[in-house]
């Protein structure tokens, strides 16, 4: 019977497409969060597959911190045009200007936490009742407890102790006015699965995932891309190195890895041999042991 057996990547693909279609069917105004990172790119690709030959029946939403890698924005605009998707961008800077969020100060300042304010405001403004995100359960211990359909109260908060049980693939998206859902189609994917799938499906990704020369700030063992957004410390070392990024977030908190990997298969070999998780390069998770759990409860992804 081996003939009628899907390999694991195709099974994950089928599962994610099912979740995306279910979101489009069960909710009135879904949106897909798009950050320009590989997970959201893969998720967007799956959304195209789910509804082809029709266009993706919901908008992509980018919460722009203003601290993006320029390469990410170039990639985003090109991709959106190619696939004919609708893109909504909301800016953290606007939230700061309106006094809705307050900028962090000092060398470790990041707009990562502020994103939550802009995100929740955007969901309310656009009346989004289901926001799909590319988070995976293997990323972080708090995310390991997430559902595919994750209920949020009217304040956008996550209550991990009181989650709805999720059985078989029967997804319950029923909600009261003002509440919304976060949906995670890639829940069961690992970092390796994402990379293998990018290779299998020949999906385009931003250049900065591949090896390149860059001026970096060496701080507390993390290699940060040098940019005007980061206030320098005296102990910082600024050097030019050959690096690439394993994850793409804000320039202020996304660490690079030194790497000569310039093709997908070289990246995959590197990850297979790697002894550090991808979030090991994320400055935002190192703030405390429960950094992710605390942010998630407040409405972060």
């Amino acid at each position: 019977m081996i003939k009628y057996h899907l390999n694991h990547l195709r099974e994950l693909e089928a599962e994610a497409i099912y979740v995306i279609r279910e979101t489009a069917a069960q909710f009135e105004r879904p949106a897909m969060l798009f950050s320009g990172g590989k997970d959201s790119i893969v998720m967007t690709h799956l959304a195209r597959k789910a509804f082809y030959p029709a266009r993706i029946p919901f908008p992509l939403l980018h919460v722009d911190t203003g601290h993006n890698f320029p390469e990410t924005l170039v990639f985003r605009d090109k991709m959106v045009e190619e696939i004919g998707a609708r893109l909504e961008v909301r800016y953290v800077q606007d939230s700061i200007d309106k006094g809705r969020a307050r900028e962090e100060k000092g060398p470790n300042a990041s707009r990562n936490v502020l994103q939550t304010v802009t995100l929740l405001d955007a969901l309310e403004e656009l009346k989004v009742d289901a926001a799909m995100g590319g988070a995976r359960r293997d990323e972080e211990k708090a995310r390991a407890k997430e559902r595919f359909f994750s209920h949020r109260d009217e304040f956008g908060q996550w209550d991990p102790k009181n989650q709805r049980p999720e059985l078989w693939m029967l997804l319950n998206g029923k909600k009261h006015m003002g509440e919304h859902f976060r949906v995670f189609p890639l829940s069961n994917w690992t970092e390796m699965d994402v990379w293998m799938y990018i290779q299998l499906e020949k999906i385009a990704i931003p250049e900065i995932y591949f090896s390149h020369e860059r001026e970096i700030i060496l701080r507390d063992g993390v290699l940060l891309a040098n940019s005007e957004f980061i206030m320098k410390k005296e102990s910082d070392l600024i050097e030019t190195r050959v690096v690439r990024f394993r994850t793409i977030g804000d320039m202020t908190c996304t660490g690079a890895v030194e790497s000569p990997a310039s093709t997908l298969s070289e990246i995959i070999d590197e990850i297979a041999a790697s002894r550090v998780t991808e979030r090991g390069t994320r400055h935002d998770d190192k703030r405390s042991e429960t950094a992710m759990e605390d942010r998630k409860k407040a409405g972060y992804f």
Binding site: H5, L6, N7, H8, L9, M192, M196, Q199, D269, A273
Partner: peptide
């Protein structure tokens, strides 16, 4: 070192 892309493509879940 025993990692192979091809093998990974044919894995079962």
């Amino acid at each position: 070192s025993d990692f192979s892309s091809e093998g990974y493509m044919n894995m079962e879940l």
